[in-house]
Design a binder for these strands. Structure first.
Lengths: 348, 348
DNA sequence: CAGCTTGGACCCCCTCGCAGC
DNA sequence: CGCTGCGAGGGGGTCCAAGCT
């Protein structure tokens, strides 16, 4: 009796080949095919070869839906993020993607558009329903929504800080970075340092501002009024115009590089030179920040490390669900000195 | 007889509730639960309410793996991309995400790190195996790998051009943008326009270069040698230093805004003013390009539209598999005039 | 009979076709 | 005809028993 045409193979033609089809072609049972597909050891080499070549002939790919159904795991990590257009988020995402891929997971990404609680909630619902083994949430604002919660007991890791510490988180050490930036300017002899903050609803922005404030206090420097922008060059420019008009501003720490860029343009238009008249420090260290005019002194974030740690933490939670997850991991940023800072103008 | 504790509910405790659990609690069969979950009309309102409240009590979420298994569809779109860190890719991705979400699909994203054929192939394999209903490939280079093919008959759309037209594609009209940039500079009285190209293996970069070349020819302008960079400000700076050394360079069209940024810095360092001595045009229109010094004249790409069209095309293919897919869609970019271009220096 | 490979039964959860009231 | 339930897959994994050496 010919075995090459089992019932499964005969059933339908343009349907992806199943284990049963491979089994029929190889003249074995589908369980043996399963063993081969999963690289089990207890298969006769000769049998394995027959199965493997049958797989190749048929172009067999295992059906992840069926697999997920029986295993109860999906080999998929969910990522919720605002605005991948922001460099920081994009780089964190890229790093997460790399780390996930190395671990054999793929990524289900949802970019939340509106910063409304409902939008976030829907994204999470979609993701957990779409079957993920764990969730990375990039950007803490998302968690500020009081309604945010993950119903289904899916492990969660937060990148970029979780103000209420409800979840394990991985984050750049914002405080260390902001303090380094502020002290650097103070050390250059500036009487004080102004701060151009990020959006007020960003936890990262708030922590940078707080650390700037603390550094000023610690140094006994006066604390100038604080203004919040929204991470864009446009808002850096808008607020920058006000700062440029004040002659007592000689040093500004901007909460990110784009804000710094807008600020520099505003200063330039007002006839105030950077760094001769005003020193500027950014935050992020975008690849292009070294090519701004002048090249920007800034705080470099190690997004790669943040992404890698997120995935590592998540996998740990997934693989040993019992254990209480590690608390927070802080990744230390690094001050990169370039040409946008200089000693305070002597005068006065 | 109490129905609230059916066999299914008793079987295991910390397993997500299934239809059977809901059915047991509501005192109906699981098929009825299915009907309610899928919003079918043929359910008695009173029954539906009972089921709905049972769902709420149990926190029921439907199991997408099982659903996908029976339906043969996953409600997931795969995205393959190089480097989300590149603004263009990130913005396309964001747009795709939005469009997909609106259509009720989620996104399985793979960022390919190395530009090797193997890496790409593996990404595609992972994605098709991970069960996607369709595939968007961002950045044409991926397709240049001769080995690239999608085995499993999954619909594919290419964003950013498909040189060999093997797949339907959606793309910015690179030629129109590059021609507009070149003509703009020519119209300002420059004898000719130099081009600072993107990476040679990028189809978009090649098309921009070709259109620049054609525009010069059409205008009877001499064609200066062409140099290829790699999209980064760093390479713009490197090549920019060479260009800055040549006094006959008075107008440069850079293949993207980051290249233009590096170029401007190089010109600045060489003491050549932009736009008084040299005019520069970029490509992309990043949000921060308006805040460069000087604000950059550039070609604005409508990434939003590209993403939206990709998803639309893909869904069309998915929903009516028979039809031959539409060929290519071109999205027209727009020249944005700012302060980095000026009439050719009179002299000579 | 120990130790190996192999196959049969059953379950995962949901949806569809059909039958029953 | 309206609403509901039964049974059968859909593809693959685990448990356990059967067959072989």
């Amino acid at each position: 009796m010919e075995k090459t045409e089992g019932p499964a193979a005969a059933r339908g033609r343009n349907r992806p080949p199943s284990q049963a089809d491979v089994a029929a072609l190889a003249g074995v049972s589908s369980q043996t095919v399963s063993r081969v597909a999963n690289n089990r050891s207890n298969v006769e080499p000769e049998t394995r070869d027959r199965v493997l070549s049958a797989m190749r002939i048929l172009g067999y790919q295992r059906n992840s839906a069926a697999r997920a159904l029986t295993l109860g795991r999906f080999q998929v990590l969910g990522v919720v993020t605002f605005d991948v257009t922001a460099q920081g988020n994009a780089r964190t995402l890229a790093a997460i993607s790399r780390a996930a891929q190395r671990a054999g997971y793929s990524l289900n990404v949802v970019c939340v558009e509106d910063q409304t609680e409902e939008a976030v909630q829907q994204a999470v619902r979609q993701l957990t329903e779409q079957a993920v083994d764990g969730l990375v949430v990039i950007e803490a604002q998302i968690l500020d929504r009081p309604g945010f919660n993950v119903s289904s007991g899916v492990p969660v890791v937060v990148a970029d800080g979780d103000p209420e510490r409800r979840f394990p988180s991985v984050d750049t050490d914002q405080a260390a970075g902001a303090a380094a930036a502020t002290r650097h300017l103070l050390d250059l002899g500036h009487r004080t340092v102004w701060h151009l903050g990020g959006p007020q609803d960003s936890y990262a922005a708030r922590r940078r501002a707080a650390a700037w404030h603390a550094a000023l206090k610690a140094a006994g420097a006066p604390v100038p009024p604080l203004r919040f922008g929204d991470w864009t060059a446009a808002s850096g420019y808008g607020i920058g115009r006000e700062l440029a008009a004040r002659p007592d501003v000689t040093a500004v720490f901007a909460a990110n590089d784009h804000l710094a860029l807008g600020l520099v343009r505003a200063l330039h238009e007002a006839g105030r030179r950077v760094p001769e008249d005003v020193s500027v420090v950014g935050f992020d260290d975008l690849p292009e920040s070294a090519y701004y005019l002048p090249p920007l002194t800034t705080v470099r974030q190690d997004f790669e490390e943040v992404g890698r740690e997120c995935v590592a933490q998540l996998l740990r939670q997934i693989e040993s669900p019992g254990e209480s997850p590690t608390a927070s991991v802080a990744v230390t940023p690094e001050l990169v000195l370039r040409a946008s800072t200089a000693p305070a103008p002597t005068a006065r």
